[in-house]
């Protein structure tokens, strides 16, 4: 197990395996998102209160879940990188940040578009909305901090500390709708019976599709990050000749 792990984590091996798996991830993500789109926009019945307007659910909820999932991945990878001084872990954190930031921006923007007709406002300083905005600032802070270092190793370590600190925000986002009496409703997907299966399956397809999309884009970025961290000229030459 460990030898397998070390082999996978070795840059040349990882670079090659990642290149081979990206098409599979992309295809699976594309098919799941296409199924989710058709199910969510065409097959799912309208909601009894929001009518067709509830279909924003199918892009808002997966974006929001991914914004948190990507942060959790990034923070755990950063912690592993700090503790075990593992270059590949730092690379995972660095490659995840821009993807997570974009998912967070999507969650905030689609929530805003949804809030206008239904709640009657684009934005309120509700605990859920505010903590999600803080998540966006954490991502941007992480990216800004990284870009302020010329040395990659120092950038990795300093930004990893910030990523680890920010994980405290994740339970706040998740439980904000439970702890505070506010306008954002509770979790539909985690409440049994809150949504019939005819409406739920497209959301699950979209969620799985978005997760695989993250995997595919992460691997593309990771290949670059691995090359940036590689000092072995012999292997780089081999990659670049192709």
């Amino acid at each position: 197990m460990w030898t397998w792990f070390h082999k996978l984590a070795s840059p040349p091996h990882f670079y090659r395996i990642a290149g081979l798996t990206i098409p599979a991830f992309s295809w699976a993500a594309g098919l799941l998102v296409a199924a989710g789109l058709y199910g969510g926009l065409v097959l799912a019945p309208p909601d009894y209160q929001q009518g067709e307007g509830f279909r924003i659910f199918y892009v808002h909820v997966p974006s929001a879940i991914l914004s948190m999932f990507v942060y959790a991945t990034m923070a755990i990878a950063a912690a592993i990188g700090l503790i075990w001084r593992m270059k590949l872990a730092h690379a995972v954190a660095a490659a995840s940040a821009p993807i997570g930031a974009w998912f967070t921006a999507c969650a905030l923007a689609t929530g805003s578009i949804w809030g206008k007709p239904m709640w009657g406002t684009w934005w309120v300083w509700d605990a859920r909305l505010t903590s999600e905005l803080i998540l966006l600032f954490l991502y941007l802070g992480y990216l800004g901090l990284r870009s302020s270092f010329d040395d990659l190793q120092r950038a990795d370590r300093a930004s990893a500390v910030l990523a680890v600190i920010g994980i405290v925000n994740l339970p706040v986002i998740h439980y904000s709708v439970v702890w505070w009496n506010s306008i954002h409703q509770g979790s539909t997907l985690l409440t049994p019976g809150a949504m019939p299966i005819a409406m739920k399956w497209p959301a699950l397809c979209m969620l799985a599709g978005f997760a695989l999309f993250y995997g595919a884009v992460l691997f593309v970025r990771l290949r670059g990050e691995v090359v940036r961290r590689e000092r072995s000229a012999a292997w780089l030459r081999e990659v670049l000749v192709k």
Binding site: P45, P46, D47, Y48, Q49, Q50, F54, F57, M118, W119, G120, T121, V124, I183, Q185, G186, S187, T188, T191, A194, M195, P196, A198, M199
Partner: peptide
């Protein structure tokens, strides 16, 4: 000056609600 509507986590088709 402002009225905001809340909703809960439940979604269902109109027929089911009926």
């Amino acid at each position: 000056e402002e009225v905001l509507a809340k909703h809960d986590e439940n979604y269902m088709p109109p027929e089911v609600a009926e």
